[in-house]
Design a protein around this nucleic acid. Structure first.
Length: 496
RNA sequence: GCCCCCGUCGUCUAGCGGCCUAGGACGUCGCCCUCUCACGGCGGUAACGCCGGUUCAAAUCCGGUCGGGGGUACCA
């Protein structure tokens, strides 16, 4: 009987959440759910300078939008709380005291400049802390304190080597001599990530740590600390570690917060569906099968194996992300697309909030026309606006030249006498008048009519659109278009 | 400098010794479908960084080399 899997989401609420953060969360999610395990969500807000409530809220928004749920942690509570590290100061102070009692740590009074100066003086090529304060005498301590210096607490790295079997990369070994003693708390007493992250993993009984490759080199330090925590009875066991590959941007650098495509929330705002973003992110380092790349979160959970994760960095490709998103959108029903597009339609003022019953009815008829041709939810308002706008506010976004206006006139004449205002009748009338009568190519014939009726070169299918627009509005717009050039000149001025 | 990670089409990847004259997807190019757009269909393009070894056989295993990335904080 193996111990149940427990993983954690542990973002730092600094700035706008990054897609790499989501990728990491997604893999943790898939791993935990695949094994029927639990997910703990804690906020690592020990950096008081950079942590913000705004960022905290954005992270929660994002997780909820994506549907990455958790079992324990912020917002939902649990037996190992509180789940904001800023509220766990007491716990860290206690652990620090116990580590100190057992001489796992020591006070260090050095400034960074002093360390660098000593390194240079000795001609050492090593960097990082040199262990100067490891064995201070009482007199030395007193001297530093007399200077008014406050010490940081450093962890005493044990001798030997540290090896772990990385879930993604296999055996990795560091020699301790290459891992300098590191600080666990600031001189002002504030705990640092180096302490807080392993301590909480221990206390929250995390069994598997899947995190970004950027943290790989801090793993030997955490493992050494963990060994001490186990000795002290703070930790039950050392979790397994797996380091996920980087998400790269353009060129050969990490996708940074500077890159616009790094901001996860932007995808929601640009009209991606969560299924699309998640599916694309899953592809960054993992594949469900050799010949398939469209799948649901549920399918990912079912098939996910951390051992299958690729160790090499993946470049974020917006084009592919968009393509995957389109594929996911096509899998949604018209009703679902309508539901998802509604906030965008409201925001654009295409429909009111709440939606009137007339608009709701029209929407139900119109959405089938656009659901399968929009690639992002934000395209819905652009495509549907012409149907909902008041006639007084209707405007044409594309121009008509004289030839086009004469086509519109012919179309108007053909439609004005129509007995039945249906898609089929409209199409028949326009084809007879324009294709057969004027002998025009379809695109030359219908383009001007489209612009006249919808205001744009791109719209839902024309005949259906005219039917939905209704006879009166359609004819009025055509009439307006054929007689009202947007320039100063009048249409009949040239016949003088 | 030192330490660690990584190396298959432009990009994401499949491949875990023979099924590979290396498969899929995105991109790109050409064609088809077509009332616009989007979708869709067909076809083309394009990769195992290099050098050694192990083996009857290597993209797959080993060593080296080169290249890329990260770390080397009182950030996370």
């Amino acid at each position: 009987m193996s111990t149940p899997v427990r993983v954690r989401f542990c973002p730092s609420p600094t700035g706008s959440p990054h897609v790499g953060l989501i990728r990491t969360a997604l893999f943790n999610y898939a791993f935990a759910r695949h094994h029927g395990g639990q997910i703990v969500f804690r906020m690592e807000d020990t950096d008081r300078e950079r942590s913000t409530q705004e960022s905290y809220d954005a992270i929660l928004d994002l997780w909820r939008w994506l549907g990455l749920d958790w079992d324990e942690g912020i917002e939902v509570g649990g037996p190992h709380g509180p789940y904001r590290q800023s509220e766990r100061g007491e716990i860290y102070r206690d652990v620090l005291a116990r580590l100190h009692e057992s001489s796992y740590t020591y006070d260090c009074f050095c400034t960074n400049d002093e360390v660098v100066a000593r390194r240079q003086a000795s001609g050492s090529k090593m960097q990082g802390y040199d262990g100067f304060c490891r064995d201070l005498t009482d007199d030395q301590r007193a001297a530093f304190e007399a200077e008014g210096r406050n010490p940081v607490v450093r962890f005493r790295m044990p001798d030997g080597s540290i090896t772990w079997n990385d879930l993604v990369r296999g055996d990795i070994t560091f020699e301790s001599e290459n891992v300098p003693d590191f600080a666990l708390s600031r001189a002002n007493g504030d705990p640092l990530y180096t302490l807080v992250n392993p301590v909480d993993d221990a206390l929250m009984e995390i069994t598997h740590v899947l995190r970004g490759e950027d943290l790989l080199s801090s793993t030997p330090r955490q493992l050494a600390l963990f060994a001490a925590l186990v000795e002290l009875g703070v930790a039950r066991e050392v979790p397994a570690y797996g380091h996920l590959p980087y998400v790269m941007g353009q060129g050969n650098k990490k996708l940074s917060k500077r890159d616009p495509e790094a901001h996860a929330l932007a995808y929601r705002d640009q009209g991606f569906v969560p299924e699309g973003l998640l599916n694309y992110l899953a592809l960054l380092g993992w594949a469900i099968a050799a010949d398939r790349d469209i799948f649901s979160l549920e399918e990912m959970v079912e098939k996910f194996d951390i051992g299958d994760v690729n160790a090499n960095p993946a470049r974020f490709d917006l084009k592919k992300a968009e393509a995957i998103n389109v594929s996911q959108m096509r899998l949604l029903s018209v009703e679902e697309i309508t539901h998802r597009a509604l906030p965008f339609l409201k925001a654009a003022g295409v429909v009111g909030d709440p939606v009137s019953s007339a608009d709701a009815q029209l929407l139900e008829l119109a959405m089938p026309l656009v659901a399968e041709r929009i690639n992002k939810l934000t395209e819905a308002p652009t495509m549907l606006g012409f149907l909902f706008v008041d006639e007084a506010d209707f405007e044409r976004h594309d121009d008509l030249d004289d030839t086009a206006r004469s086509v519109v006139k012919t179309a108007y004449d053909a439609l004005a006498g129509l007995h039945e205002w249906s898609t089929a009748a409209i199409e028949e009338a326009l084809r007879v008048a324009l294709i057969e009568g004027l002998e025009l190519k379809p695109r030359v014939a219908f383009g001007p009519v489209r612009i006249a009726a919808t205001g744009r070169k791109v719209s839902p299918p024309l005949f259906e659109s005219l039917e939905l627009l209704g006879r009166d509005r359609s004819l009025a717009r055509l009439h307006d278009a054929m007689s009202d050039p947007r320039s100063d000149s009048q249409p009949d001025s040239q016949s003088d």
